[in-house]
Design a protein around this nucleic acid. Sequence first.
DNA 1: CTCCTTATTGATAATGAGTCTCAGAATTTA
DNA 2: TAAATTCTGAGACTCATTATCAATAAGGAG
Lengths: 142, 142
Amino acid sequence: MANYDLLKQALKKEGLRYTIQRQSVWDELCATDDHRDAEEIYMDIRQSGSDVSRATVYRTIDVLVKNKLIRKLDLGDGRARYEHKIDTAHHDHLICVQCGKIEEFMDDLIESRQDAIIKKHGYKLIRHIHQLFIICDECSTK
Amino acid sequence: MANYDLLKQALKKEGLRYTIQRQSVWDELCATDDHRDAEEIYMDIRQSGSDVSRATVYRTIDVLVKNKLIRKLDLGDGRARYEHKIDTAHHDHLICVQCGKIEEFMDDLIESRQDAIIKKHGYKLIRHIHQLFIICDECSTK
DNA sequence: CTCCTTATTGATAATGAGTCTCAGAATTTA
DNA sequence: TAAATTCTGAGACTCATTATCAATAAGGAG
Ligand SMILES: [Mn+2]
Ligand SMILES: [Mn+2]
Ligand SMILES: [Zn+2]
Ligand SMILES: [Zn+2]
């Protein structure tokens, strides 16, 4: 499932070696479309039979984020979450403040307004965060 | 400068006493339109001649956030920032990734698109975060 | 393949923002 | 004034993440 060439490429670019541990982390990140934190990823790797230390999970995640193979999310709950970027278009997130469910959204109009705002100021847009904190339908009918 | 009635009201609502320490924190938060973290606010209070412990700064900030007298911002740098909400309309933030400068923006079209997205999903919007990370003109001509 | 150099790993210590605890101080109530 | 209640400040604690470092593994030269 995971594309090892992408990982090899990124590691080569960083002057890092290709190891079984780094592959395990990449495998696990590609295994789901979830938005998991480092501890969840670590536990899921162990569940799948591989054994990698927390330190290596954190270190590998850093490399993958830097090389844009995965995205780091900060949902304001004190730990970073990660999602892979393989075959996915840009999107932002809807987060239920009750149950924590995460959905994705994308709106061309908002994206273009962002660009307009930046252009008006004469700045250069590096990245953006757009999060809508909601109460989902399940949670509101309860 | 600071409106003490708003503070008194909030403390009363929470069943808390009006103290000189809580007033100092409120004073300092109203003194500027900056986006400061707790440590900066604490140091600025001491600078201004008052003496309040860090613990009280944190505790008072919590009360003020809960009662919407100030807003908590998470700019992704590991510590929360705060700004007062007196005589200010809703706005979101532009943040220079080089120098850390923070500017504010507001776009009615974006705000209404957000509502449309939420409505389409059948959810209830609680709050949102919209941050544009940029390189400001000063930093790009350097 | 074997040796050698260099990078990687994992266990654990350290960090740092924020929270908790609790004894003494201050305020309110009786 | 005395008793009851709330606050405060110092420092202990939490928890995600980062740093340290000795032991291990990868990769290149021969
Ligand atoms: Mn996503
Ligand atoms: Mn602001
Ligand atoms: Zn929900
Ligand atoms: Zn700048």
